[in-house]
Design a protein around this nucleic acid. Structure first.
Lengths: 198, 198
DNA sequence: TGTACATCAGTGAACGCGCGTTCACTGATGTAC
DNA sequence: TGTACATCAGTGAACGCGCGTTCACTGATGTAC
């Protein structure tokens, strides 16, 4: 028998493992058997800690939400000013793409039409929360004079989000040949020209 | 018995219906029973015209590819100049989002990790083809002097693609409240400022 | 023009696989006395 | 400190549903003579 763990610790372990599998397989390719195996359990053991598959996905989404928000907050805290925070956030997204855990990729895999309505609502809530945080950075940039004040913060935030998504797609299509770092650097210059005050 | 059709006409009818269902349900929610019903057939009848589910998806992808490319070509032909072609293309993407047939949405639903490798390769090929066409428009814009010549056409094309994707996401999240037309107009201004020569 | 035949699209019953989920049981861990 | 008991995480067999797919059969359409 596998080493016993109390259900709280096991829940968290399973939720994290589920998120990893989701990044690889997508929400529909995701299955309980593989999840159980990845934490050294038998499939039925998962039901000691979760009500079912959908419950596991919900817990994985919670982990995902925390990580995404932490990503933005870290960039905000570590950078000297709002514009540099956005640039730092962008390069960190690029790193995630390289490691296979791209944020938009996971978002898309969870927000599928087949999925249950409450899961989709949760995913969309995460997206709105993300955009709201980026919007906050944009507003800060406007206050500090780095970003033009005539720009709609929501539009700028969505434009920023749009910098990342096509890169994920092309990374998938081109594989290693696609130089994300170079791409991100070029596209950042375009973004800065679009919103910057100069 | 349903009215007989020759297999060529039926194949096309089924492929188009499949694309419609894919837009609604995603590639994993897509099932043969519903597809058959939508064209007034019994599930097993589909196998008179296709080898199987994956074959149907492939045919639907072909229809999709033709439509996407036609979208770009139409914008190119109808607009006075390359920059206006891009703007026209963007507003037509917005219309598709409103009608539920958003291009990135369908792309994402086909390019899932669970899908067979050949289907994913096809989807990615469509994306590359799309980007290449937009790149062509960017180059034309550079030649005609509307777009700054120091800009990498691929980056500009990906930035353009990125204008649409977050809008799809937010449209899903916010529903009718989200005014796509207004969003597209604002984000277009940002794009023009990023790449335009002025 | 009429008849016989071949072709082929459509039907419905049945099969089988994958996978989420259930359940009775086991045995380890922690607690009461 | 040692023993008895309750709790609870882990096990493996089995169930059942959904769904893609197969197959023998039907009947309409078009062609040969």
């Amino acid at each position: 028998m596998t080493q016993r763990m109390n259900t709280e610790a096991r829940r968290e372990q399973i939720a994290c493992a589920a998120l990893g599998l989701l990044a690889e397989r997508g929400s529909e390719g995701f299955n309980i058997a593989e999840l159980a195996e990845s934490v050294g359990l038998v499939p039925s053991a998962v039901y000691r800690h979760f009500e079912g598959r959908e419950d596991v996905l919900g817990a994985a989404l919670d982990v995902f939400r925390d990580r995404v928000y932490a990503l933005v907050d870290a960039a905000r805290n570590e950078a000297e000013n709002p514009l540099m925070a956005l640039e730092l956030l962008l390069t960190r997204h690029a790193k995630l793409i390289e490691s296979g855990g791209a944020v938009p990729h996971i978002m898309a895999s969870m927000d599928v039409p087949g999925g249950r309505a409450d899961r989709r609502a949760k995913t969309q809530g995460i997206f709105r929360g993300y955009v709201a945080r980026v919007e906050g950075l944009v507003r800060d940039g406007q206050d500090s004079g780095q970003i033009r004040s005539d720009i709609d913060p929501t539009s700028a935030a969505l434009l920023f989000a749009g910098l990342i998504q096509p890169a994920v797609q092309l990374r998938h299509a081109e594989g290693e040949r696609f130089d994300i770092t170079a791409h991100v650097a070029r596209v950042w210059e375009l973004f800065r020209r679009a919103v910057g005050r100069d």
